[in-house]
Write a protein that binds this DNA or RNA. Structure first.
Lengths: 130, 130
DNA sequence: GTCAATGTACATTGTATATGTACATTCAAC
DNA sequence: GTTGAATGTACATATACAATGTACATTGAC
């Protein structure tokens, strides 16, 4: 069992816990912090660690398995799989543009400066380019 | 009553409709497409247009009013107000970084190319800088 | 002063989320 | 090969949240 970077779960956010788990793990998977062959914690272990019921973690694992990231088998746990590059969804680009704008609008409304935002955008751009 | 840009509501998304309305309108407010003094459609009008119940729109308006964007009065409707720049939330920056990474991970998982993503990031960066 | 148009209040219904509990499966040990 | 403990799964339950239905209080135009 590999030491994964700690996921942050905030039960007060308006987004359900199982989705926070999915989103957090998907980041690690896309960024290859979790690689094919790696074993994730068992649903009970991760549930303990995050302070949620193991069925909540199981639901998250199931969604990620449905997306093609994980191979779930009883007694063996959750193993990261090779995942074929998916074909681009037709409206993916426009949807991304909209979501990004909304995210930025939200943090601007929370008082984050335009400077801090552009800095972060540039950081991520660079990170993707390398 | 001003002609607002059309909001996109998708009842199939896992994010509730009233939040889609809030997020969409907040974008327009932050980007000044809706300016102080402008009148929004009535809750019934916008409800009709989006195909949702007017109380759903009313809930969205209430949240935006609580954030300081709108002035709600019976019979007058919803008016965009001047809004004082808020103080930055302590963890705003880290939260933005995390949300942004997760958003990018999601669209990459949906097959959007890194090239398309960076292009959009650069576009938004530029837009903020001007 | 009247009244129609507005946002509000709140009850109701439906759906989603999180948990509790029992179970089927499978691998390791022997 | 049998056994048993550890795993993910299945499904029932409780609760919270979202969306609607309906009635109402307020207010500005006339």
């Amino acid at each position: 069992m590999k030491r994964e970077p700690q996921l942050r779960i905030d039960p007060d956010l308006p987004v359900p816990v199982y989705r926070q788990v999915v989103d957090g793990l998907r980041s690690l998977l896309v960024e290859r912090a979790l690689q094919p062959g790696d074993a994730l914690p068992t649903v009970r272990e991760l549930g303990m660690e995050l302070g949620v019921h193991f069925n909540t973690v199981a639901e998250a694992y199931r969604l990620l398995a449905a997306e093609g990231w994980l191979d779930l088998r009883r007694r063996r746990g959750a193993i990261v799989t090779e995942r074929a590059a998916p074909r681009q969804q037709p409206q993916a680009e426009e949807q991304f543009s909209r979501s990004l704008r909304q995210l930025i609008a939200q943090v601007r409304a929370d008082g984050l400066s335009v400077r801090a935002i552009t800095k972060e955008l540039e950081r991520l751009t660079l990170e993707l380019t390398v």
